[in-house]
């Protein structure tokens, strides 16, 4: 049995110009590739929009497969990236002088350190990193990748601002969320390569559930193919994506509208027994509530506030059924205009 390859890896763009939808980024980087001069990079944007792929493709094109290992250090969230690693591993790598290049590739005289998911690094580590950046910026380029720039430590951002005027060697790129056409294009390409049949309805479902995240879309596609063979329907996509069927959400909201507590409780018990992830329920209930024309703004506000709180509680490890129950009870009170406050406290 051959080890299966993830399609996400298999169809990762090999060259910068293959990166979908991020035209501005591609243009700037293509220019950098021609001159062989790469600025410090900061990529940010929603997941699955090609940040990591771009970083990998750029470095690969710069150094070629031979030098890639010695010139590029890739660290992501699952590596240990505490302050010790910054002090030792990163610093050591950054400090080493570069050797000669290889023909066929630009091989500029510097190394690249890619820090994937930089926003999950500890603050101490980020601060330590800043020193390293300032000291070795001549021989080492840093490439930060993160989802939210606001989560990145202030010093790093400051660092970007400081270096910027000096060398104009810093570039911030925002990666846009992929629109449906681009997504369809990529998916259909993979489908034809892999011999997968997919109707337009299934395609629409796939792009809906993956919410502009191409990586997720490809993963769903591969999972569906594995489980259900080469002909994929919309239902198959739904089942692998873990998205909860609409009717479940509908009946839950209906029970809330009815104002009968026991009915809501029954729905909750059912959902838990079916094993649906409650965080997913929350996000779908949220979509429904926000889009619903029948619910007043005040009601929406009340419902969403509790949803947000409950979602945080889940992250803290709270019990799913109790949180869902509480959300339902709160939603019911909002929808039926019952009093929100606890009356017996």
């Amino acid at each position: 049995m051959a080890p299966s390859q993830q399609w996400v890896e298999k169809y990762r763009p090999k060259q910068v110009k293959d990166v979908a939808h991020q035209d501005e980024v591609v243009r700037t980087l293509a220019n950098a590739l021609e001159t062989g001069n790469l600025p410090h990079l900061l990529f940010y944007g929603p997941p699955g929009t090609g940040k990591t792929s771009t970083a990998l493709a750029v470095t690969r094109e710069l150094f070629g497969p031979q030098l890639y290992k010695t010139r590029v250090l890739e660290l992501n969230a699952s590596d240990d990236r505490g302050i010790n690693v910054v002090r030792t591993k990163i610093k050591d790598f950054a400090a080493v002088a570069v050797g000669r290049g290889v023909s066929d590739y630009p091989c500029p005289p510097f190394k690249v350190i890619i820090l994937d998911e930089a926003d999950s690094m500890t603050e101490d580590a980020q601060n330590a990193l800043r020193r390293t950046m300032e000291t070795y910026s001549k021989v080492t380029r840093f490439c930060f990748i993160c989802n939210y720039i606001s989560r990145l430590c202030k010093t790093i951002i400051l660092c970007f601002r400081i270096i910027e005027p000096l060398a104009s060697r810093c570039a911030k790129f925002r990666f846009k969320s992929l629109n449906q056409d681009v997504m369809h294009g990529r998916i259909l390409h993979i489908c034809s390569e892999e011999g997968v049949q997919m109707g337009s309805e299934a395609l629409a479902t796939l792009s809906r559930v993956s919410e502009g995240d191409l990586r997720r879309a490809i993963t769903y596609l591969q999972s569906a193919t594995r489980l259900y063979g080469s002909s994929i329907t919309s239902k198959d996509i739904l089942s692998v994506s873990g998205v909860i069927p609409d009717n479940v959400i509908q009946s839950l909201l209906q029970a809330c509208t009815s104002g009968v507590f026991d009915q809501a409780q029954k729905e909750v018990t059912n959902i838990i027994a079916e094993g649906y992830p409650v965080s997913q329920i929350f996000s779908q209930v949220y979509d429904h509530v926000v889009e619903s024309p029948e619910i007043s703004d005040e009601q929406k506000a009340k419902i969403c506030q509790r949803l947000a709180e409950a979602d945080k509680c889940l992250l803290d490890g709270a019990d799913e059924s109790l949180q869902l129950m509480d959300v339902c009870s709160n939603t019911m009170r909002a929808l039926c205009n019952m009093t929100q406050e606890c009356s017996y406290v």
């Binding site: 507590f261 409950a310 490890g317 019990d319 109790l322 019911m332 009170r333 009356s343 017996y344």
Partner: peptide, 21 residues
Amino acid sequence: DSELKHEVCHWAAYHEHRMQL
């Protein structure tokens, strides 16, 4: 009584969450 159920289930969720922390 159903009137009380809302309140009680809220407190249950509240305290269970704190228990985890």
